[in-house]
Design a protein around this nucleic acid. Structure first.
Lengths: 245, 245
DNA sequence: CGTAGCTTTGATGTAGGTCAAGAAATGTGG
DNA sequence: CCACATTTCTTGACCTACATCAAAGCTACG
């Protein structure tokens, strides 16, 4: 088996939750055959669209968002390598959100029927994917809690820590920081405040020496203080090791 | 087959999405044997708890919430008859939220293994339950969007319309309104504003003749105007008829 | 029939929004 | 590799939606 399969971002992420034997990993890699590239900025899924195959992101970042009739947009979540795109919408007739590549991306497609067939033969894979879906939902819940009960600074801190933890799982960050392609406008659309206020929040975090964002790179200068300030608890992201041995 | 089975809130709700033959309905009713009552106000699930069987609510209302270390609490969603409790947490080692009965409730338990076994024999049931889970997530997403991009009045309007639509699906509301056991404190914990501000929002809705909340009953006086005011689109709740024939 | 939890209202404070405008970075074609 | 266009960042001045504090009237139920 090629190293690249075992070492794909998806496999890495799932392995944290379910110990997957090589046979399962082989099935997993065979699932995602058709790999496509998409340019930055042009939506690849629209709200109301009705195709619905699932995709896994291989490289780059995307965001999932909704637009109100007022024109305001809310980014629900960002997806990074190893994340599913539109997994939740698979059972729906239509997608309930838009998906926009934040950077140039590569994504691998899998049809719903292939996925369900793989679940039949490799039940452990089904468990792993369902776990991934539950984790996605847990992230949305945590985001909702932040919108309701944290101020803009705490939300920013929490957001950066969460992304850092997620990127580490797929090998795209170390403890010190990570490359982050998001503009302040995108942060604003995701976290609620205006872009102007995002800027003020970033300055505050910089001036208090907690973390900086320069040259498209997030750097943690006092990780522990940041965690304490926003009450970040990463349990919902990795559950501290494989649940199924 | 007893009428009560086909007419249970869960069966009613699922039927909107997937046409379930009597055989599936029979399996469904056989799943939920152990029915228990719980008093209002005392939590039945705690964040961090590790049992995780799934439950379906038979009567009454509950809320799912998280508490920050600051002490603030955010209600993520309310569950009404026919809704699953903690379905998402089934795959997790621990529950990531608390569940509190808003009224006295009755709930039926199903073990994870029984549920998965039923899916093997009745795949259509699995589809229906996965749909229910996706719908739950879509509601959380819509809640998140509202927190980020709607003001307090629009959120209240949207919340009431959503609950009205959900209650209609299980036969607990007509077009004119519904019985609602929530205090203004609970509305505040769910929608974000302070309880004092919730009161002012309610007054505004009353004085503009859109809808009222008296004697624990929500009444719509101008449903169309309310829908227009908050941009409510119920697609994510019922998808206008069964997806699978 | 008291008391604890709800609801309602006024007065005042603040986080974050909006508007405006210049500086820096980034991308693009020649 | 430069000139120009476009996006992104930064900061100041001012404003609004909502928070907080305080207090009085409900209402429900043990």
């Amino acid at each position: 088996m090629p190293v690249s399969v075992i070492d794909s971002p998806l496999a890495r992420k799932l392995a944290v939750f379910v110990a997957l034997p090589d046979a399962d990993l082989a099935v997993l890699s065979a699932l995602f055959v058709r790999r496509r590239r998409f340019p930055k900025g042009r939506d690849i899924v629209f709200e109301g669209q009705t195709d619905q195959s699932a995709n896994v992101l291989a490289s780059g970042w995307v965001c999932s968002y909704k637009v109100l009739n007022s024109g305001a947009r809310q980014i629900v979540d960002f997806q990074i390598p190893g994340d599913f795109l539109g997994l939740r919408s698979v059972l729906f007739r239509t997608s309930d959100h838009n998906i926009e590549p934040v950077t140039r991306i590569e994504a691998s497609e899998v049809t719903t029927s292939d996925l369900l067939a793989a679940f039949d033969t490799n039940p452990r894979l089904a468990t792993a994917v369902l776990w991934a879906a539950s984790r996605d939902e847990a992230m949305v819940v945590e985001h909702l809690v932040g919108m309701g009960r944290r101020n803009a600074t705490e939300r920013m801190a929490h957001f950066r820590l969460e992304l850092g933890a997620r990127l580490r799982l797929v090998g795209l960050a170390d403890g010190g920081g990570y490359a982050c392609p998001l503009s302040q406008y995108m942060l604003a659309d995701a976290l609620g405040p205006s872009a102007v206020h995002v800027n003020r929040v970033l300055r505050e975090l910089r001036e208090t020496g907690l973390c900086t964002f320069q040259n498209r790179r997030v750097t943690f200068h006092d990780h522990a203080a940041l965690v304490a300030m926003c009450g970040f608890d990463k349990t919902y992201l990795d559950h501290d090791g494989p649940l199924l041995a």
